[in-house]
Every structure is written in structure tokens, then in C-alpha cells.
Write a protein that binds this DNA or RNA. Sequence first.
DNA 1: ACTGAATGGCTCC
DNA 2: TGGAGCCCCTTCAG
Length: 551
Amino acid sequence: MATRRSKRNAVVEVEKLEMTPVDLEAAVRRSSRSALAPKRLSYSPGNPTPQKKKKTNTVEDKNGQNNVKKEEEDEDDSSDVEQTSGGYGGLSQYELERLENIRKNQEFLTSINLLQATEELKQLTRPKPSQRGLMRSQAAVKEVLPARKSLRLQNKEAEDLTLPPEPRANLVYDQFTRLKKPPGSLPMDPLNTEEGSKLPSQLLELCSEDLKEEKMDPSLKGYQSALKKMRITEDQVAKVVKDRIFSAAFHPCTSSLLMAAGDKWGKVGLWKMGGGWDDDGVLLFEPHTRPVGCMAFSRAHPTHLLSLSYDGSLRCMDVEKAVFDDVYDIDDGLKTFDFLSHDCSTLVVGNWYGEVAIVDRRTPGNSHESLHSLDPKIVRCVNVHPLQKQYFAVAESHVVSIYDSRCLKKTKSQAVSQLYGHSKSISSAYFSPHTGNRVLTTCLDDHIRIYDTSEVTSKCPLMKSIRHDMQTGRWLSKLSAVWDPKREDCFVVGSMGRPRRMQVFNENGQLQHSFMDAENLTTVLSVTAFHPTRNALLGGNASGRLHVFSD
DNA sequence: ACTGAATGGCTCC
DNA sequence: TGGAGCCCCTTCAG
């Protein structure tokens, strides 16, 4: 028997027709395994169970408690497979046996095993990504980028560098010379519809509908069973932006699910699940030119979507006026924002340089914001206390500081309280949605932590620390654990584990549910968010696709 | 079918 | 303080 099956096609080799059904079953299992992990040792006839190396995903193992389901394919169950030793008598006898074996095997294949093998193959072949969303009109949206090949490789003389062409509004530039969008309002012209076409009227209707709150079972058990009922189907995945998703949000409307996502090149996509207009209900805009690091619909004015970009601009999409208005603007390095006041007219905005600005939207332009330098020169996330609005948490490099917005100084503002225990950089810190009695942090030291902040001004103890793989590497957005806004005690986080999943935990670190789907969830969903009132959960991936689980 | 490149971002020195 | 080293994940173009 061939010792090494390099490829999955090996499964249906003709030679297997001569094996006994038991052999065949084992061979199928083996070859499917080798397709999963091609470098694994092959079996030798004399030693049917070579080093039973429990090589599950190391990442999984690190996660330990986070596992819901161990991967069965590594449970080696073929150890007792009998090896048929030659032992055939005369040739005619052999021929008879051979024919009989072939007949049996064909019977066997047509019964369970072939079905099983094709099932396994289906699992191994990566499903084609969803073709919904920005696919059909891709040609219209397509940016024509010059081929990038160095002059040296082309054996050409170096050219004098020339300045990029003068910027014109809404023109897409080469990624390497692109400039910021011009200041002032930008028209809300979708990139994926015909030029001059108006926004679909449904969009404004949805954005301005009366907000309803569904009655939810407050018990953890009831919540858990609600999560288990949530499903994802083919039409709940769509390409909403062109590139990797950096931020996403649910619109609070309930009659349909409306979402926004921001990508690496400053695009903002809106998606009404279930269609309604072209591209399966997707509208694509470009209010920024660099990653859209943070976005949120205004709670006070649901026709407003605020989006912030590394390019230094913070804009407000206004569906009524069909424009992207300027809210705040610096040269570059905006990182995070949150609403400060209940009416969403004031904001706290953080940048890469350790500065926090209080922005009042009622006074246009940059003149009325005040800039405060916090001590560590890094701000990755700001989040305002849901009740005591003067307090906001700042994820600094290795510590979360809680500041009082009334007591900020030009430099080195004193924190009201600090949360310690992080050994690497902190990606996010959020107050629990209803009381603010907890702060949820995500840290690159592979831990999600929950602090007790019921007494903001005194020492806030660490309540729970949950191990979770945060090593997303270069090409994925970082993970962030985010609260379910419908509850005080549960949050969702993406995962590196396979099969791909989103996980919901409670504040005690107990896994409530893992959202998985072999067909429709096949990539890492770094950006996650729960709907504010409905049982719906979104996850955004590195190719600009949003995935929705809902009931 | 396969390969290489991708302008992110943190940590360490 | 700034640059090298690293993470090892996904996607797309060639």
C-alpha cells in the first residue's frame, strides 16, 4: 500500500477497491486526516498506530477552558484495524476473492462510506466566500491601480519623484499617495450605484423609524437558550466593504437589520440584510482614506452615523441631509471616540499621541474642543460611563485609567482610578452597559479581564481573568471583547479557534454559547457587535464581509 | 493549483 | 526614541 497520501484525491484511488471494507474505511479516515495535516507521519503496516501524537491546534490548547468542542478528527480510533495479510491460495481462488472484494467494496462505497467521504471532502474544501453584497458591481467600483514593480526590478533608471496630482473630491487615488478628503461636507454618493442616483428611500425610512424594545428574558438560562436559537444562513453574509473590516455597528432599528462597517481604506458600507436595493442591500461610501477605526450610530439621532479614521477625520453621516459632515479633524492619528452626553452632542476623542479631546458638535470646526494630554502617550480606546457621564475609561498602553472629564488638564491629567494587571498592550476597555459597575478589557497578553468598578473613585479590583488567544497576526484586525448592550453581564468576542466561531461569555468567565456554522462562518471574525435591542449578532472579517446570526 | 505580497502594529533592544 | 523582528492569521493577483 502506498505509504503517503499527499492529497485528498487519494481517497478514491482504485487500489482501494481491493481492500476489505474495514481497510477502506480506515484508509479514508487516514487520508482525510493527512489532508488536514499533510506533514503528519504516515502509517506503516507493521505499526498501525504510530506515535499517537495529540496534535490538536496548539492555539486551541492554549485556550483550554474556552473550548466547547474538542476536535474529533484527532481522536485516533483506527488502532485496532486489522491488516489483511496476503494468504491467497490458487489464482482462480484469488481472482474470485478479488472480484468478491471489489463487489463488496463497491457496495460499501455506495452505501455509507462514500457518502461519508464526500461529506468529509466538502468540509475540507473551503466553501466559496459569499458572493452577496459588493460583487456584481465590482467592475464599477474597481480601482485601477498601477502595477507596482520597482524600477530596479524593471532594470530602469530611477526617476525623480514627483508630487501626486492635485486632489479632487471623491476621486479615488492610488493607495500610496492618497490624500485626505477635502474638509467640509462630502455628498453621500454611493460608489456602487450609477452616478447621480439618489439614496434609496428605504434607507431614510429605516433610519428614522420609531425604536422598539423587545421584552427579553432576564435570566441567564433564558439568554443562553435565546443565543442557541440564533442562526446564520447564506443570505446573512455579504461583502459590505472592499477590504478588511476595522469597525462595525448595528443600527438600532428593529423592522430590518441595518448595519455599517468601516474598512482599511476609509470606506464605509451600509447593509440592509434581506436586500431592498442593488448589491443585495449594500451601499458603499468613502468618507475617509485610511482605516475607519471606530464608528457608532448616534443614540439621540439614529439618522446619524459617526465614523472616525486614522487619517485624522471624524465625520457624521447624515442620511436626511445625504452628506458626511465634518465633526472633528486633526492631521492624523485619530483612534477612538465615544459619546459623552446623553444627547450625543459632545464626544470624547482619543488619538495615537496620548491626547484626548472633548468635542462639542454644536460648535462646528475645531475651535471649541479642548485637548488634554494624558501621561502615557498612547490611547487605544475611550469609553464613557453609562450613568456617571463625567467618567470615561481610557485603554492606555498597560493600564486602564478612568478620568473625570471635568478635571482634565492640558497635560498629565490625574486619573480618578486605574485598573492594573495587564502585561501587554490593552486593545479595549468598556464599562458594562447598564450600571457601569464592571469594566471589560481585552489585552494582547491573551487575557480578557473584568474589573469591579462599582466604586469608581476607589481601588477597582480585578474580578475575573479569562484566557483567550489574541494573536491575530498581521492581516487580521485585533480582537475586542464587547458587551451585549441588552445585558449587564455578558459579552461577545471573536476567536482564532477552529472551527471559526464567535463566543459569548458571562462576567464570571463562563462560556454561554459558541456561534459556529460550517457553511457560513469560515473566517476569523475580529469585529463583533450585538444588536442593541434584538437577538442579533454581527461579525466582520478581513475581506469586508459581515456575518449575522439572528433569531 | 499554487505562490507571494500585502503601508498593521506591538514588543524588544 | 526608532528600527528590527515578529505574529503566522486572510485575500487577491499573477
